[in-house]
Amino acid sequence: MADYLLQVEDLTVKFGGLTAVNRFNIAVQRGTIHALIGPNGAGKSTTFNCISRFYQPTTGRILLDGVDVTNMPASRMAGLGVARTFQNLELFGELTVFENVMIGAHVHAGKTWGDALSACPASVVDHVERLLERTGLSAYRNACARNLDFGHQKLLELARALAIRPRLLLLDEPAAGLRNREIAALDALLTDLCNREGITILLVEHVMQLVMAISHKVTVLNFGTKIAEGTPEEVRNDSSVIEAYLGQEMINA
């Protein structure tokens, strides 16, 4: 019996008359890296946004560690150990790098009114500093987030998400726009997070180089329905997947 951290059952999302996702199921095993791929407009981001509770599914259930979170407000997901990044960067642009990550630690800074007004516990600040070091952002600690270059901004989003100390890390196209060298580094970082800290990762990604290198399992979506699932090797050789992609990236990967 596999141990699933996240289960999505029969997820259907309709926008007006358009069915973006149709009776979709996915189960993410604890401690693994699971990739969700598919051509443009396949419904990946919609699914992703349902799981992180930014969209409300029309029907279906989302279970986190066996608990139904289908009607949970998005702002409570962080407290449950679910962190996410954004496809089009959503940084706190005018704030410093340090402050961005500090806000990530929001749910660990106490709950009472007294906590709200007092300075942050040293342990939280330490954790934030360690994250900055780990992502190589320490040197930019006091820089405004919007002044960083693109690669660093992506890292900052990741560092901010990690400040939540997530059980489940949801990454929306983490490699998009990065250079090869940076993708390799991201590859190392994600593998490390999964192996050493046991963080479960679900990523939506177009860059096959990353997906094929690090994923334990890959689910392929097309036109809102699942067309294949399996190890990277299995998916790569699946004829329906090759057809869906018309051989573009799959052959290169």
Binding site: F86, F92, A116, S118
Partner: peptide, 20 residues
């Protein structure tokens, strides 16, 4: 923490939500 959450809301409501 309160002030940080205010500024987070100012800078990006969706990101603030994702941070809890």
């Amino acid at each position: 923490r309160l002030g940080r959450s205010f500024r987070a809301v100012r800078e990006s409501e969706v990101a603030a939500m994702a941070m809890g």
